[in-house]
Design a protein around this nucleic acid. Structure first.
Lengths: 226, 226
DNA sequence: TTCATAGTTCGATGCTAATCGAAGCATTGA
DNA sequence: TCAATGCTTCGATTAGCATCGAACTATGAA
């Protein structure tokens, strides 16, 4: 008999198109209701309910009851990690969904990865901050330099507040479309929040796309390439 | 319509018990023949052939023809990464098939997990490095401390060379015989290579067992418990 | 109370895929 | 040439499961 963790059981849960669509939608970081997830997956509420029951039993998602809604979130960061790795593989071997809609180019350019910026602009942000020596990447991972700390404070980010949380400040996250690192962690999330607040960009509803205004994109370019 | 990489297709390939068994066996890093993989998976050669054809079409494994054998290997380090992440999730949510660990005591003591050390000694290595504060583990994973970087350089490991690769330097890999973490990633692999080079240990052919010499084991104990 | 919405359960259906026996190639060795 | 081994293809069987219509429960609003 085989020993060890039963990866087939977990992988099978991620291996159904409808469930994969739901989980991908949850990577936006928002909690979604059962009905919303049904729409995301393109199935009826009954089918979605069956899938969600399976995902819940397998502890892939966590439900939270609120009024007559049930909101679902991913059960942990390891799920996000697994989905990202699988996306990387699917991308490498060319398993892309055949019908690449009009959204695809926008998605590759700038999208939200859980709560931080990914896509070409996410990678550009990471590289730009590194080139300006605001972040520094050593064997431990990424960290803010002293200059980076000054920058963050000047940019309106409450670093002390972020540090109080358990979550790491900076973290690399591999981008499936660009195949390079972008900036994750609470600092990465805070940066994206500031972009929203400054009006540089906004979320396109019902998708993971982050759309920059012309002026916002110019400001962004100035930021990373002064 | 949905956009992005088709993770369901990849996940479904990993989501069948027979295929998952084969892939887990290939994590030993050795190339295995179709018949060997059939035995590992506990299915007949015909069934295994069908599975291998699917895995090959999905570019999860790579075949290499040699005489009248076909040797299979995993198609890339990202596959290993995916399997490791899935193992971590499966363990976290308690999806274990485990009743008993590896029966062979030697296998339980020290074996290779793809390319790094697993088993009791793998766990001891992880704990020892942590106790010496050479590695540090936070919510997002493991990382080398500054002292760890010095140690690695002094131990003959080319960290800059390792970092040039896309593969993560440090990663926790859950040990299913000891049920604790051992050290994976390129640094974990480099450590095991050094053990071989230093003559501390060698691979037992035709198995995943790593056999330490008496002197080698003593040096290993000194390393992790100075 | 009555109606509307959110979500689930049940049952039927239909499709996919895993499995293995039997037979067929292909390579190697005698 | 013949036999043995490694592996694949074919065909039939089976089981699981995704799907949805219909009916049911629960919450909230009028």
């Amino acid at each position: 008999m085989k020993e060890g963790p039963d990866i087939a059981r977990v992988a099978a849960l991620l291996g159904d198109p409808a469930r994969a669509n739901m989980l991908t939608a949850l990577m936006s970081g928002r909690a979604l209701t059962a009905t919303e997830l049904a729409q995301e997956a393109g199935v009826t509420p009954q089918t979605a309910s069956s899938h969600l029951a399976k995902l819940e039993a397998g502890q892939i998602v966590k439900p939270r009851k609120e009024g007559r809604h049930r909101y679902f979130t991913l059960s942990g960061p390891d799920i996000v990690e697994a989905l990202e790795v699988l996306m990387g593989i699917a991308n490498r071997v060319g398993h892309n969904r055949v019908r690449t809609g009009p959204k695809d180019p926008e998605l590759r350019k700038a999208r939200v990865c859980y709560d931080h910026l990914a896509g070409d602009m996410g990678v550009a942000l990471f590289d730009g901050l590194a080139k300006r020596k605001l972040i520094e990447s050593d064997v431990n991972g990424v960290a803010l330099t002293p200059a980076g700390i000054d920058f963050a404070n000047g940019f309106g980010i409450d670093l002390d507040g972020l540090r109080a949380k358990r979550r790491p400040l900076c973290r690399e996250c591999l981008d499936w479309s660009a195949r390079q690192s972008h900036l994750a962690g609470s600092f990465g999330a805070a940066l994206l929040d500031r972009f929203y607040d400054l009006g540089w960009a906004r979320r396109v509803p019902e998708s993971r796309i982050v759309r920059f205004s012309d002026a916002g994109e110019q400001s962004f370019r100035d930021l990373i390439n002064p």
